[in-house]
Amino acid sequence: MALTSDDVQRLARLARIEIDAGATRDVQAKLDAIFAMIDELLSIDTAGIVPMAHAQDLMLPLREDAVTETDRHALYQQGAPSVAGGLYLVPKVIE
C-alpha cells in the first residue's frame, strides 16, 4: 500500500497534528516503508482465530458504586496552560 500526500494530510487532520506541506513527502516516504513492513500481516491465514486484545483474559473488575474521589481541581489545574475561575480557557468556539 502506498500513501498519497493527500492521505498524509488527511491522517494529520484526523490526528490533530499540523504537518507542513514541505515535510509531507518525507513523512509519506517513512510511513510507506512502515506499511510495507506491516503489510506482511495481510497474507497470514487467521480464519477462525479470536483476536487477542490483551495479555490477560480478565473481566473488568467491579467496585462499589461509591464516591471515592475528592475535589482536587485546583491541584490538577496547576499545570494547565490557561485557567481562570476553575475553568480551562480555550479559543472561542461559538461566535
Binding site: L41, L42, I44, T46, I49, V50, P51, M52, A53
Partner: peptide, 10 residues
C-alpha cells in the same frame, strides 16, 4: 488492527 490482534493470538 483486528488482523494484528489475531496474529498476536497465534
Amino acid at each position: 488492527y483486528l488482523k494484528a490482534q489475531q496474529v498476536r493470538r497465534l
